[in-house]
């Protein structure tokens, strides 16, 4: 099992075999999670702290469940409500944490690079649960596991990522991961939601959704944040749905067996038609949630092994 990393801060530092190591172990946890006992002891005795500087329900619940299933003592700290308001800096937060001797720290922060900064200052394994518009590595890993289970492989697939690429950490992590696993990534969205220089990432960019979906194996939709809907980046919600919302007609351009993904939470009728989201023949959105717990168990397990090995000397 090849995973020589102290932290999981992003997909960028991971080699293809590191990604495969997480996914392979996650497969075992999918089986465990479907069994009656649902309990392992890989994290027994370890303390996991979930620090969310930005509100999150699903990701935090997924990390919490993953830690508890592997026997860790899990604590949630809702940071947006506490010390930030009192003016504490991230560095002070890190020093405070060190005194509590956590072993695994799961962090979400609204600023790109903030989790890297924290990782430099704490003495435990850090998992990035999303930093600004930079990376969200466990989301990309759970997407990869979902795709691999549905398609049998991660290479030589045509995968379209549609929507607000510019503000999406999910898109960045997925572009990096899928490129590294030798699949072809297409990005679809209006130019106002496309980051500068994105062509240099080895992706194809489309502003016509039908052309972009033509013949793809996987359609990955992104959430459009409410605050970006009114005039700033796109003219209106209804025009966006007309041009970039995934409906049966547009999905018809993809391969007949193409799967539909969404990181959630969905805006039905904005980026995705409700019926498609619920179509059990096409949508793997519920699978993504299930894979999320397994992938997070695998990532924390691997980091804990490295942590224990380092501490042992």
């Amino acid at each position: 099992m090849s995973f020589p990393h102290a932290h999981l801060l992003g997909i960028e530092p991971l080699a293809p075999e590191n990604i495969t190591a997480i996914l392979d172990l996650a497969e075992e946890y999918v089986t465990l999670n479907r069994s009656d006992t649902k309990h392992g002891d890989a994290l027994a005795g370890l303390t996991q702290i979930n620090m969310f500087f930005e509100a999150s329900t699903r990701t935090q619940a997924s990390f919490e469940l993953a830690g508890k299933r592997l026997g860790a003592d899990v604590m949630n700290m809702a940071m947006q409500a506490s010390s930030l308001k009192k003016g504490e800096t991230l560095i002070d937060t890190a020093l405070t944490l060190n005194a509590m001797h956590p072993d695994l720290l799961v962090v979400r922060h609204p600023q790109s690079g903030a989790v890297d900064l924290l990782a430099q200052k704490v003495r435990c394994a850090v998992l990035n649960a999303g930093d600004g518009r930079h990376e969200h590595p466990t989301q990309a890993l759970l997407d990869a596991l979902t795709i691999r289970r549905a398609k049998g492989r991660l290479h030589r697939l045509n995968i379209a990522i549609c929507g607000d690429i510019a503000h999406s950490r999910v898109a960045r992590s997925n572009i990096l991961l899928l490129g590294r696993m030798e699949s072809r990534v297409r990005l679809i969205g209006p130019p106002t939601l496309m980051p500068a220089g994105i062509e240099e990432f080895g992706v194809e960019v489309y502003d016509d959704m039908r052309a972009g979906l033509d013949g793809v194996d996987v359609v990955m939709m992104l959430r459009l944040q409410k605050e970006r809907m009114d005039g700033g980046f796109i003219p209106s919600e209804r025009e966006y749905y007309h041009r970039y919302g995934l409906d049966a007609e547009k999905l018809g351009y993809a391969k007949p067996d193409a799967i539909v993904m969404h990181p959630g939470p969905m805006n039905r009728g904005v980026e995705i038609d409700g019926e498609i989201a619920d179509d059990i023949n096409r949508s793997v959105i519920q699978d993504q949630v299930e894979m999320g717990v397994a992938v997070r168990m695998a990532a924390m397990d691997l980091l804990a092994r490295n942590l224990r090995a380092r501490r042992a000397g």
Binding site: E135, A196, E200
Partner: peptide, 13 residues
């Protein structure tokens, strides 16, 4: 500055 690097780091550019 906008470009590949800023997009990779997710920084407003």
């Amino acid at each position: 500055t906008s470009g590949k690097f800023a997009s990779l780091r997710g920084l407003p550019a």
